[in-house]
Write a protein that binds this DNA or RNA. Structure first.
Length: 300
DNA sequence: AATCGCTGCAACCGCACCAGT
DNA sequence: CACTGGTGCGGTTGCAGCGAT
């Protein structure tokens, strides 16, 4: 027996909102607020809409101070850094970007930002059209696609983030220990993710779940590595660099000594895509969150 | 001008969580 | 403790618009 529907589907309008409906909803909420009950709201407001639909419309479109339009570089960096640290927890990410909604950020990530990160063909050294739009996703088993893309994105988001925050000669923390070495204290979000603390970095009032650091993500793939890019504008370029190491030690980045290693990136992609075929992404995330918690306990 | 394919965005769906009973 | 209803979230889909052919 399935769950009872939240509303009478037959008598509920679906699809795009008309200006009249928007006006009704806005007027009602302006006058009476949401009343803490979205299910009852549409009836009171005289709308033939599902409560969930009203809530979504309000939160994503009608709410005051909603910011539409282009994302700034700074917003890009915040999204990348948070994605690298906590994954696709859009509501948490949205909480860090005033005026942006989780849906907005999710769409932006899926349609634009991910392209910046994924649109890199390691074999040809050229930018290619990535498999990123929903219309293509049908061709790939969901599980496989999600694991592959999310992990690659995660790794490369880390790269983007690192490139934005660290000078070229920064020594990175070890993934084995997760203890940061020479991270400047001013690196806000990244240092939060690189830290072993589950409560640091992200504002406690907006983030209550455990974090998964970028280091953790790499560890997931049984592959210790750091990546670094020299282009500091948040754009993946031909100068992208991947530095890999397998001894868990800190890694010193040097432009002279670390030529672009495309094969390593390909290896990582392969490794990730094969490693997670049998691994549910949610369960592995949970597992690593637990491990993170454990590490925190050990560390303190 | 017509058609096709791609993109971006708004909205929907289903599930998990939580509080109340 | 189990059940139920409401809410929030992330993933997915539908579709209009646009550019290429």
């Amino acid at each position: 027996m399935g769950r009872a529907p939240c509303c009478d589907k037959a008598n509920v309008k679906k699809g795009p909102w008309s200006p009249e409906e928007d006006a009704k909803l806005k007027e009602y909420i302006d006058k009476f607020g949401t009343g803490g009950n979205w299910i009852a709201l549409p009836q009171k407001a005289g709308l033939r809409r599902c409560g969930k639909s009203c809530r979504l419309r309000w939160l994503n479109y009608l709410r005051p101070n909603i910011k539409h339009g282009e994302f700034s570089d700074e917003e890009d960096r915040i999204i990348c850094s948070l994605y690298a640290n906590i994954g696709s927890r859009w509501s948490i990410i949205a909480a860090q970007l005033p005026g942006r909604t989780d849906n907005d950020i999710k769409n932006y990530w899926n349609t634009k930002l991910k392209k910046k990160l994924m649109g890199f063909d390691s074999s040809s050294h050229k930018i290619i059209r990535p498999l990123n739009h929903h219309h293509y996703q049908h061709q790939i088993p969901t599980n496989c696609y999600n694991n592959y893309s999310s992990q690659i994105s995660l790794l490369q988001a880390s790269s983007l983030l690192i490139s934005s925050n660290y000078p070229n000669n920064t020594t990175f923390p070890s993934y084995e220990t997760n203890i940061p070495s020479t991270i400047p204290s001013s690196t806000s979000f990244l240092s939060a993710g690189a830290s072993t603390s589950c409560t640091s970095g992200i504002t406690a009032s907006t983030f209550t779940g455990p974090t998964t650091s970028s280091a953790e993500s790499c560890d997931i793939s049984n592959f210790n590595f750091h990546s670094y890019m020299y282009n500091n504008n948040g754009v993946i370029s031909e100068g992208e660099k991947l530095i890999s190491g397998n001894n868990g030690s800190g890694c010193h980045v040097d432009e002279q000594e670390n030529p672009l290693d495309y094969s390593s990136l390909e290896e990582i992609k392969d490794l990730i895509s094969t490693n997670h075929v049998t691994c549910n992404s949610n369960s592995f995330l949970l597992d690593h969150e637990i491990k993170t918690e454990e590490k925190v306990m050990m560390y303190y």
